[in-house]
Design a protein around this nucleic acid. Structure first.
Lengths: 205, 205
DNA sequence: AACTGAATGTTGACGCCGCCCACATGCCCA
DNA sequence: TGGGCATGTGGGCGGCGTCAACATTCAGTT
């Protein structure tokens, strides 16, 4: 009555609670018993909906990835239209990278949780919506507009991803945890600039 | 008698055992009770030498960092001498980065353990011996030989570190765990090349 | 050589955790 | 109406980190 024996939508409630825990304390904060406690259900109830803790974490990771994708998409969409093709493509890559780092620093727990495990059918439900696909799209555009030589295109996505991913982790859990935000932003600008120069064709850019 | 009540050098033995556990299973594999078990001492014995688990992990991390430094130094020292200054400086940066990634992939557990926590007096006991210092030295040399413009020097160490760190983690625990070594090496070469181009002064390089 | 205090190691306990089991409850459909 | 199945409960197991009390050894003083 007051609290019906069957929750009705326990699975979703568990994921939501777990998501909040991940946000607040990172992947290690997603404790099955605590999640159950917050939903007001007994420990073990979760096992009717998830094989084990990792299975829950997997779904949380997917949600985190989706959120990251959204943040990246938002920044890309906010780009002004009236730019020439080349600078627009270059700015697009910058925004993709900046959004990635911005999200990681704004949501450290969720970000690390999202990378603590991976599902096969990754974040992007419909193709093209995941962070990886957005990055590849940005790079493809750089080739299309003639800024990035086609010969340099293979592997470029790994370079870009590695750079922003490493930057995020170094400032999140790494030795750069304590640098002040201004220096951090300057360093990020420098990183994006170096990548831009490194990818660009001197003849064209 | 057979096994003396006092171990004699328990602290070092615990660190060694913990180091092996870290190597094999990463930071989460460093379990106090297991470390004690391996040394043949009761659980809790470790508390006479370490404040808590993190304290032990800290020392393990230091050792891991030192090992990383050694691997980097070895690669740098192996560089041939008879090169002109500019290419030598550029190669030096390449080797620093390659050694970093190589170590991370060869010793995944120890590498992640080394970055799972940090001591204040970081890895390099004597100044200049830590990974960070070696990277900075390589970049300073790039400035000295005129390849890297002094104006681009600030923040360059963050860019380089982020790139190789991110590359390592993406291939270690990240979505790129499964790419085959050949592709991985090609991607790393591409990354180092992009960084080299991004840092270099077009007029000089 | 005996005494004493500090250092070191042991035993036992507490409260967490993930996970497994047997059982209780409520829903749906024949 | 009744039976089967999904869902939630309660208890228990072993493992963890940590604390407190106790045992043993060592080293320095007299």
């Amino acid at each position: 009555m007051s609290t019906p024996y069957h929750h009705g939508n326990l699975r979703a409630a568990l994921v939501d609670a777990g998501l909040e825990l991940a946000r607040a304390k990172g992947p290690d904060g997603v404790v099955l018993r605590e999640v159950a406690r917050q939903v007001g259900v007994s420990h073990n109830a979760a096992y009717r909906h998830f094989a084990d803790r990792d299975d829950l974490l997997l779904e949380i990771a997917d949600r985190g990835m989706a959120e990251l994708s959204g943040a990246m998409q938002a920044r890309v969409d906010a780009l002004p239209d009236e730019l020439d093709a080349v600078t627009r493509a270059r700015l697009r890559l910058h925004e993709v990278g900046r959004a990635y780092v911005e999200f990681a620093l704004a949501e450290p727990g969720l970000f690390t949780a999202a990378f603590s495990c991976f599902s096969e059918n990754a974040a992007g439900r419909e193709p093209g919506s995941g962070p990886y696909e957005m990055l590849n799209a940005a790079l493809d555009e750089l080739v299309a507009v003639g800024y990035l030589a086609a010969a340099r295109r293979p592997g470029a996505e790994v370079t870009c991803w590695a750079a922003v991913h490493g930057f995020s982790l170094l400032h999140l859990e790494g030795p750069m945890r304590v640098v002040d935000p201004a220096d951090r932003d300057a360093a990020l600008t420098g990183l994006l600039d170096t990548i831009d120069r490194g990818l660009g064709d001197p003849a064209t850019g």
